[in-house]
Amino acid sequence: MIAKGRVFKYGDNVDTDVIIPARYLNIADPKELATHAMEDIDDTFVSRVQDGDIIVATKNFGCGSSREHAPLVIKENNVSCVIASSFARIFYRNAINIGLPILECEEAANDIMEGDIVSVDFDTGIIHNETKNKEYKAVAFPPFIQSIIKAGGLLKSLKEREG
């Protein structure tokens, strides 16, 4: 599977409170929730983001709360992938569990800039920066996590096993 899009670039420690502020956590409808994605760090994100766009950030992306609403609002905005030097652990689990593709790659995270056009091959982990014509290799997921992703999320993979 290949994703391609324009990059929204952020820095270190993008926390779940800026990805989706708690004042909106009383909203049950994912579509409505998604209109507030990234609001407290980038209030133009929702109006600018196009289907397939990619978020790139440096270390500890998604730190803070366990709210699954955070990867969910990114996914609902049809962001194809999040690339970071590192992810906070609960965000990492949540993204995999709900089927939001994420990749850890420090070189890509440091090198890719806002507005770059980037394509990602999820099968090989190769990230291609078309703007800069450079390639980076992301850390591969262990087979167990790959099986969750392949099934379309944790609950679907558990159901398959049960099946």
């Binding site: 699954e68 990867p71 609960i90 569990n97 709900i98």
Partner: peptide, 10 residues
């Protein structure tokens, strides 16, 4: 340890 809602559902 803290987990998300899908982990909790599982």
């Amino acid at each position: 340890t803290g987990v998300g809602s899908t982990d909790l559902a599982a």
